[in-house]
Design a protein around this nucleic acid. Structure first.
Length: 282
DNA sequence: ATCCTATCCTGTAGGC
DNA sequence: TGCCTACAGGATAGGA
């Protein structure tokens, strides 16, 4: 479940290690990713290009190359970038792209579940790409405000949780951080997004910034397969307040954490800290 | 337009 | 031990 903090962690590591390197050899695996429309000719199109910059929008990683082309990459559920793959990595399954640079260093893209993406597009067509064109603002580059979120949610009946997951409104929040943000903001995940009051959106905006920022500082959350470019786990998992903690005590009030399903996905919350209705003043 | 559901895919965990 | 099933979820297509 790589979300914004995990992708940003990988982006920063790539930025400090592969900029200026020139692709000399490309090997593509036969088992193709779901989203590689330019697979034919991809290897020859990559060869000879030098990496000039690394960008990110939401969960999309953008690798800018010389010759006005950019790789659009998404980690999907289980995607990983590996730099300097170790000798035992030779036996890794599902390595879809192997890049070898002129200096002999190697960068691999692996994705067992194949929900990821690896596409090469002309840079001037980047923003017309169907995956990127409809994305909402990135909360790290454009920190959300309460009034901005309230405007986006006006009249919507979808739940607050599904609102946060919708990449067309805010780009980068996934299932883990959506639950964490709502718990910290003390908002019940099933509240209709259009029914939240301005003060509640202010809390959500503030917790989006806080949770994502802290998760980036800790190099993301390793729940199952995510690893950094150096194959290290992220440390934010220790900070999780509700995700995957059904039945365990809330860290704020000790009430048991509950699990519900929204949009065929698990949501975790504390019924005491995140009431559906406003509680009467004592 | 908004909302909802099914689908893609593989590794892993749990039941028996 | 092995077999089977259920589950995990990011994005998207298609239907209501």
């Amino acid at each position: 479940m790589p979300e914004l903090p995990e992708v940003e962690t990988v982006r920063r590591m790539l930025e400090s290690s592969v900029i200026g390197r020139t692709i000399e050899r490309v090997r593509l695996s036969r088992s193709k990713l779901r989203s590689v429309p330019h697979a034919r000719g991809l290897a020859s199109a990559l060869r000879g290009r030098t990496i000039t910059a690394l960008h990110r929008h939401g969960k999309y990683l953008l690798v800018e190359l010389t010759g006005d082309h950019t790789i659009i990459s998404h980690l999907g559920m289980s995607g990983r970038w590996l730099f300097h793959p170790s000798p035992e990595a030779r036996r890794l399954d599902h390595v879809h792209v192997r890049l070898e640079f002129k200096d002999g260093s190697r960068l691999w893209f692996q994705d067992p579940r194949r929900f990821g993406m690896f596409r090469l597009v002309p840079t001037d067509e980047l923003h017309e790409d169907p995956s990127l064109a409809l994305l909402g603002a990135d909360p790290l580059l454009n920190p959300p405000t309460g009034s901005g979120l309230a405007a986006l949610a006006e009249g919507l009946r979808i739940s607050a949780k599904l609102f946060l997951l919708d990449q067309r409104r805010i780009a980068g929040i996934g299932n883990i951080y959506a639950s964490e943000i709502l718990h910290r903001a003390r908002i019940h995940p099933a509240r209709p997004a259009g029914s939240l009051r301005p003060a509640e959106w202010t809390r959500i905006a503030s917790e989006i910034r806080a949770v994502l920022g802290e998760a980036v500082d800790r190099m993301g959350t390793t729940f199952s397969s995510y690893r950094t470019l150096w194959n290290e786990p992220g440390a934010y998992g220790e900070q999780l307040r509700v995700y995957d903690r059904a039945g365990e005590p809330c860290r704020r009030c000790a009430a048991p954490i509950r699990r519900i399903v929204q949009g065929q996905r698990s949501t975790f919350y504390c019924a005491a800290c995140q009431p559906l209705r406003k509680m009467r003043a004592p």
